[in-house]
Simulated assay, not measured.
Amino acid sequence: MSEQSTRVSSAARRRAALAAGAAALAGADLALKTWAQDTLAGAPVGPDFAQLRLAYNPGVAFSMGDTLPSWVVIGFTALITAGIGVAAWRTAPKSKAATAALAVILAGAVANLIDRAGDGVVTDYLHTGWWPTFNLADVFIVCGGLAVVALSWRRTDQEHAKAPDIT
């Protein structure tokens, strides 16, 4: 097998893992949202500082844009989600860690987009008492984003060797 076909095969495996991982995580969030809608309506569970409580968010993070028409919010989030998907697809052949981080972000973005597409709102169910109510997809987006930032700080010796000397 040639080196090029090995690279193509590796890239295909990473892309398949990206798609499968993002789909599985998005599915888990959507299942939890369905459970929350069926179980938590009018009946929060747990103490005030860490409660499962049903809420709906017509906006995006921290309810920003909650007064905009739902088609604007859906369109905007669809464009961002598509951009994340393209970035993840293009990154997959290069870095396992970056691909995994982007897959987690993509999973959260896709899950929230699918949830929002039905009625213009996102189902939230995790409530801390001091932070706005959120969902697992939001956790995916934040943790994936933190991972991308952490990975951007990490450069291997090979990358340093390849980087042009600008001094």
Rank of each mutant, 00 (worst) to 15 (best):
R53S: 10
M64K: 08
Q51F: 01
G83W: 10
A26W: 01
V139Y: 04
L113W: 14
T77F: 08
A111L: 06
P132Y: 01
A78Y: 11
A137Y: 00
S95R: 10
A26K: 00
M64Y: 13
R13Q: 13
V142A: 10
S152M: 11
A43I: 10
R15L: 08
I84P: 05
G21Q: 05
D48K: 12
P69N: 14
D119A: 13
A88G: 08
L113M: 13
Y56C: 00
G129T: 06
L32G: 03
W153I: 09
V122Y: 01
T67L: 12
T77A: 05
A26G: 03
V110S: 00
G46I: 00
D124V: 07
I105N: 07
M64G: 08
A31Q: 04
A41H: 14
G129M: 11
I84K: 04
K33C: 06
A24V: 14
D29N: 00
L25H: 06
F62A: 07
W89I: 08
R116F: 04
T39S: 12
K33E: 03
L40I: 08
L136T: 10
S63I: 01
W153R: 12
V148A: 12
I105H: 07
P47M: 09
V45L: 13
A22G: 11
V139F: 02
A17E: 12
P132Q: 06
K94F: 15
L32T: 01
G83N: 09
Y56F: 12
A50G: 03
A23G: 14
A111D: 05
K33D: 03
T123I: 02
G120D: 09
G83F: 08
D124A: 09
G120R: 03
G129L: 06
L146Y: 05
A50N: 02
I74D: 15
G129C: 08
V86N: 15
T67G: 15
T67D: 15
W153A: 14
P93A: 03
K33M: 06
A41L: 04
T34V: 13
S152L: 13
A111W: 04
T77Y: 03
P132I: 05
F49K: 14
L54G: 07
L52W: 13
A19W: 04
A107H: 09
A19C: 08
L79W: 13
R116W: 07
A101S: 11
C143I: 14
I80K: 06
S63G: 10
